[in-house]
């Protein structure tokens, strides 16, 4: 494998991995607080639609991304209302959100199909860093600002989660809400905020698709990315830093599935990312407790004060 291969693979992995990274970071926070949101696909597609429609109307991609974030929050808060306040089944509520989001975005987006975005979010070249041989073209050209923001965000979210009081609050709500409650942490508020953050990030991930990655709106353009996000969350052991590797690793796999077509059967390559997700989880299961990916203790369980 010559350097050209490496450069293009890493570069494409970064570009394709962005929506996965943003989505995964959001889902990590939601799940750390004890709420599974299978509606990532729905929030992403709504974000993609809103991002395009607003960016097209107002003529600036920044507004589009803001709108995508806002729509993501609204969808996520709805999920939080159902699962935290009404204590509905989280899996079913998430599935419903995906179903509803795909339908609604498709419905609203009918008039916007097949038009290029007037002003897409451009790619940037990082000054001077781009000049570095190999690393420059690999990491510092052809990326949008969201690639770097995403990585920065992952670091920040890691620090918050593991090095601050807020992080302790979030994790304790996810592990044992009753204990957290007795310590005076408002379980409901923490869960609402974490799920809303999840929606915000998923919305931006979707907005990236329609505003930067492929600046136009097409129905179903998230094409199953939301599900990959769900897998990546576990893949990353609910750790924002590991999400970086996970997301870009999946990005690389997706790129390679087209790159390697000349050598390996295309159908085999297309199922590779999915098989890989299972394989990695299984292998980490082999490795004993140290490698085991342990989910937050009360993931998926609604909290009712005074029970358990």
């Amino acid at each position: 494998m010559d350097l050209g291969w490496l450069v293009s693979t890493v570069s494409r992995a970064l570009a394709f991995g962005v929506p996965l990274l943003w989505g995964t970071l959001g889902e990590i926070y939601a799940e750390r607080s004890g709420v599974v949101n299978l509606g990532v696909e729905g929030m992403m597609i709504l974000g993609a639609y809103a991002g395009f429609a607003v960016a097209q109307t107002l003529g600036h991609p920044g507004w589009g991304l803001l709108a995508a974030a806002a729509v993501g929050v609204v969808a996520a808060v709805w999920h939080a209302f159902l699962t935290v306040t009404l204590r509905a089944n989280q899996y079913v509520s998430g599935l419903a959100l995906t179903l509803f989001g795909l339908g609604l975005a498709g419905l609203l987006g009918r008039g916007w199909e097949g038009r290029p975005l007037r002003v897409p979010l451009g790619t940037i070249t990082v000054p001077s860093l781009a000049e570095i041989p190999v690393l420059g073209p690999m990491l510092f050209v052809d990326q949008t600002i969201l690639t770097y923001l995403g990585i920065l965000l992952a670091v920040v979210l890691w620090v918050v989660l593991f090095r601050t009081r807020w992080g302790i609050a979030i994790r304790s709500v996810g592990e044992s809400p009753a204990t957290a409650d007795s310590l005076g942490i408002n379980v409901t508020v923490v869960r609402y905020l974490c799920v809303a953050l999840g929606g915000l990030l998923a919305g931006v991930g979707g907005g990236y698709l329609s505003v930067a990655y492929r600046p136009s709106w097409t129905e179903g353009m998230t094409a199953g990315m939301g599900w990959i996000v769900i897998a990546l969350t576990i893949f990353a052991s609910w750790d924002p830093l590991q999400a970086i590797w996970g997301a870009f690793f999946f990005g690389a796999l997706y790129h390679l599935s087209f790159r390697l077509q000349a050598y390996v059967s295309p159908e085999l390559l297309k199922l590779m990312p999915y098989a890989f997700a299972i394989l990695v989880l299984a292998v980490s299961g082999f490795g004993g407790a140290r490698w085991r990916r342990r989910a937050p203790g009360s993931l998926g369980v609604p909290y009712v004060r005074g029970e358990r």
């Binding site: 492929r214 790159r259 295309p266």
Partner: peptide, 19 residues
């Protein structure tokens, strides 16, 4: 790309060809 319609796949396939 094994699909009549998949913008993301079309994009990455094109990028692979460009590479």
């Amino acid at each position: 790309i094994y699909e009549w319609y998949n913008p993301a796949a079309a994009k990455e396939a094109t990028e692979a060809l460009i590479a």
